[in-house]
């Protein structure tokens, strides 16, 4: 692949990825208000989080506005995202692989950021000494990411295949996903090994990409690596790996959603209660298009 095929290929994938992710997020956001289903401990309850308590520990809690702290939520998520705290605490055998796989991904993403910086430095004709520093950083970050990630992904593949606790729950798609990630790391290592100046070449490629240079080109190894990364990005929104976004909703919209009913919610709930129900069991009495609220109320008449 050479010339304008590159920007078309990459920017199309980025666009499709963003569109799909926005669609997935909107789909979640637009779902109806649900019944409360919180689970302690809830970090935004700053006063009581240390022992897992909630505002319901307060006598006549409704008499006082319950503040929600922001910082403990960030801390909680940071421990989870960067250290895999939950897996460390409850599944120590998996942690070395899960931790390294995630950090491999984080470092590869960080290296993409550095390639972008390098492209800007090249466009801005920044002194070569400065560029060299950033090229070195990009190289170290990328190669560390590939190696660490490869360790993690190989460990996970072996764990899933050899450990009876995982094997039954791992489908073809599970292995496909892991092999895809492995392909990113392996192709990255190959591209790096076959390149005299890995980060420089990627910096130049990124520059040509953003300036839509028709002469954009790269080596076969580097090109394969780039293609694998972007095909993976295209594949990502169709997988459970979108948990990097949806984790926000599983926590904030369900586990930590302890907001008492408010006026805005009441209006939405009234609409929901007025919807027809089609469940078929006799006790539901959904015949003749009965609505949720009617079914509940009639029983109590």
């Amino acid at each position: 692949m050479s010339g304008l095929y590159w920007p078309v290929f990459i920017f199309t994938i980025v666009f499709v990825f963003i569109a799909l992710m926005v669609y997935r997020v909107l789909k979640i956001i637009k779902m109806p208000v649900h019944l409360r289903w919180e689970l302690a401990p809830i970090p935004h309850d700053k006063e009581r989080y240390s022992h897992g308590g909630s505002y319901l520990e307060e006598h006549e809690w409704w008499r006082r506005k319950q503040p929600k702290a922001f910082f403990p939520i960030i801390t909680y998520m940071a421990w989870e995202i960067f250290l895999m705290k939950g897996v460390w605490q409850h599944n120590r055998g998996l942690w070395p692989f899960s931790f390294t796989l995630h950090w491999g991904i984080y470092l590869v993403i960080l290296s993409l950021f550095f390639h972008f910086i390098n492209a800007m430095l090249l466009i801005g004709s920044v002194p070569a000494a400065v560029q060299d520093v950033f090229f070195s950083i990009a190289s170290v970050v990328a190669v560390t990411g590939y190696c660490v990630g490869l360790f993690g992904v190989v460990g996970l593949i072996l764990k899933r295949y050899l450990d009876k606790n995982y094997r039954e729950y791992s489908s073809y798609s599970t292995y496909f996903k892991l092999l895809f990630l492995a392909a990113i790391f392996v192709s990255g290592i190959v591209a790096w090994a076959l390149s005299n100046d890995f980060a420089n070449a990627l910096g130049v490629f990124t520059r040509d990409l953003f300036t839509v240079d028709s002469g954009i080109t790269t080596t076969a190894a580097m090109g394969s690596h780039i293609i694998i990364i972007f095909l993976f990005i295209l594949y990502l929104p169709f997988t459970d790996m979108v948990h990097f976004i949806t984790k926000f909703f599983t926590h904030h919209s369900v586990r930590w959603d302890d907001s008492p009913q408010n006026e805005k919610m009441t209006a939405k709930l009234r609409d929901l209660i007025n919807q027809p129900v089609t469940w078929s069991a006799p006790h539901v009495k959904s015949n003749r298009g009965n609505r949720w609220g009617d079914i509940v109320e009639k029983e109590n008449d």
Binding site: I28, P32, H34, W37, Q275, T278, W279
Partner: peptide
Amino acid sequence: KGDNWTFLQP
């Protein structure tokens, strides 16, 4: 959504 608004999102 109509039948299971109560727990659809979770």
